[in-house]
């Protein structure tokens, strides 16, 4: 096994262990409840269902586009990794924006400020990572966008989600006065 493969395998195992650890930490914090049941009310669950459907449909559409591009052997100005990164992030963005616009993104017991803080930190960190890649010349190699575009992709995704959320919250605050 080459050094690259060993490093890759090690990284993969570490990420898996981290995912399991985070899951159990959250499960413990939620008092042994592993699922998100109870976090969203019935209307929100219904709307999230339709957002999940749109997300799954987007993935299927992307799969079809990907197969078409592979079949046609289209030479795109981006690497396969970059294409996968974009195709991975796009449906997540669709899901998030759909949920936010229908008031089904933030659960009834969730902390909005905490979410905005974490999202903001992610945006800032990813902007710095993007700048680092651009300065090092690792963003575009041989005229092709590399899979390092995941960093600006994440920054854009979280920025869009946060901006949509803040705009929507402002609209809701204005509406709540009229509804009472």
């Amino acid at each position: 096994m080459s050094d690259y493969q060993t490093g890759y395998l090690l990284g993969f195992v570490v990420v898996l262990v981290l995912i399991v650890a985070v899951y159990f930490i959250f499960r413990k914090r939620r008092g042994g409840q592993g699922s998100m049941k109870g976090e969203y009310d019935e209307r929100q669950q219904l709307l999230r269902g339709s957002a999940y459907k749109a997300c799954a449909f987007s993935y299927m559409l992307e799969m079809a586009i990907l197969l078409f591009l592979e079949g046609m052997q289209v030479d795109l100005p981006l690497t396969r990794g970059a294409l996968y990164a974009i195709f991975f992030l796009l449906p997540i963005g669709i899901f998030a924006v759909m949920c936010i616009r229908k008031d089904a993104y933030i659960g009834i017991r969730s902390n909005l400020k905490q979410f905005i803080t974490i999202g903001g930190i992610i945006v800032i960190v990813e902007i710095f990572v993007t700048i680092r890649y651009c300065v090092a010349g690792e963003m575009i190699v041989n005229g092709k966008l590399t899979d390092n575009c995941l960093a600006p992709g994440l920054a854009i995704l979280f920025f869009v989600v946060l901006a949509t959320l803040l705009i929507h919250e402002r609209q809701l605050a204005a509406e709540s006065g009229e509804d009472e």
Binding site: E42, Q44, D103
Partner: peptide, 8 residues
């Protein structure tokens, strides 16, 4: 035990 938007 629901959101304000649901009541609205």
């Amino acid at each position: 035990g629901v959101s304000r938007q649901t009541i609205s």
